[in-house]
Amino acid sequence: MVNAAAGSLPLIRLRGISRVYGSGEAEVRALDAVDLDIAKGEFVAIMGPSGSGKSTAMNVIGCLDAPTSGEYLFNGVEVADLTQDQHALLRRHYLGFVFQGYNLLPRTSALQNVELPLIYKGLGRAERQAASIAALEKVGLAHRASHDPSELSGGQQQRVAIARALAGNPQVLLADEPTGNLDTKLSIEIMEALKGLNETDGLTIVMVTHEADMAQYAKRLIWMVDGRIERDGPTREAA
């Protein structure tokens, strides 16, 4: 993707973004004229009560859902101007996704799970394996590359899912409730891994969470209510 305004815009810019479902009395305004900038290298946590719009915001940023109105620029490019194929390329080459569920293939090694999205990128076997091992090393699991998900703890499975998202070398990692299925000890394990990726590799991370203690690992906290941003600032000040 070509940066349309190199150095002059944040990596992610939302202006007046709204997402409306239904109409009339059944209308639901999941996002309501949201303005948001996220710079390269930030670690941002998005919180809010159920129905606040935090997951919808994540889906719009990840190009999994299109806004009803407003402007979304990624790296200076207007996302609405992209074709369907270009949207797919944006997700494949620039965005990595981690969800609450690990979504790993059973009876398939950790290495093969991480390799899977690289097959769709057209990488050869040797290149895929090298990239996948490097991604597993980043999350401390290269020594478990040959193990199936059933042989891994919940925290290790989520780290494999993170490695899978990292293998394509994305500019942004989007994490939707990444610790939602984990106990406190394993949640801390995952958050330490994400913190390390942000601080060591400079990876931009946008995370949706309902857990205030997990949000503390981020550097910036956005609090949403009724589809709008109510508070936005350094994590400890905005908490």
Score class of each variant (00 low, 15 high):
A4L: 12
A6L: 09
G7V: 09
S8F: 02
S8K: 14
P10G: 04
P10I: 10
P10F: 03
L11E: 04
I12R: 14
R13I: 00
L14Y: 01
V20C: 12
G22N: 13
E25M: 11
V28M: 10
L31M: 10
D32E: 10
A33K: 07
D35T: 11
A39C: 09
E42I: 12
I46P: 06
M47L: 07
M47N: 04
G48V: 09
P49W: 04
S50R: 07
G51P: 09
S52F: 04
A57R: 00
M58H: 03
G62P: 00
G62D: 01
G62L: 07
C63Y: 03
L64I: 12
D65R: 09
A66P: 00
S69M: 05
A80K: 15
H87N: 06
H87P: 01
L89W: 03
R91V: 12
R91T: 12
L95T: 01
G96R: 09
G96V: 13
F97H: 00
Q100M: 08
N103L: 04
L104F: 08
P106W: 13
S109F: 08
A110Y: 06
A110V: 13
A110D: 04
N113D: 04
N113R: 02
L116W: 01
L116D: 00
P117L: 08
P117E: 11
I119V: 13
K121C: 11
G122V: 11
G124Q: 11
A126R: 13
R128N: 08
R128G: 05
A131L: 13
S132M: 12
A134K: 08
A135T: 08
E137N: 13
V139F: 07
G140C: 09
G140S: 10
A145H: 12
S146K: 14
P149D: 01
L152I: 11
L152Y: 09
G154D: 10
Q157P: 00
R159Y: 08
V160P: 07
V160Q: 05
R164Y: 03
A165K: 02
L166E: 09
Q171I: 02
Q171R: 15
Q171D: 14
L174E: 01
L174F: 00
E177A: 03
G180Y: 06
T184S: 14
L186N: 15
S187E: 06
I188M: 06
I188Q: 11
I188E: 13
E189Q: 15
M191Y: 06
A193H: 05
G196V: 02
N198I: 10
E199V: 09
E199T: 14
L203I: 11
T204I: 06
I205F: 03
I205R: 06
M207Y: 00
M207G: 01
M207P: 05
V208I: 14
T209N: 08
T209K: 07
T209A: 02
A212F: 02
D213M: 01
D213Y: 01
A215E: 04
A215D: 05
I222R: 00
I222M: 02
M224S: 07
V225L: 09
D226Q: 14
G227T: 13
R228D: 01
E230Y: 07
E230W: 07
P234A: 15
P234T: 14
P234E: 15
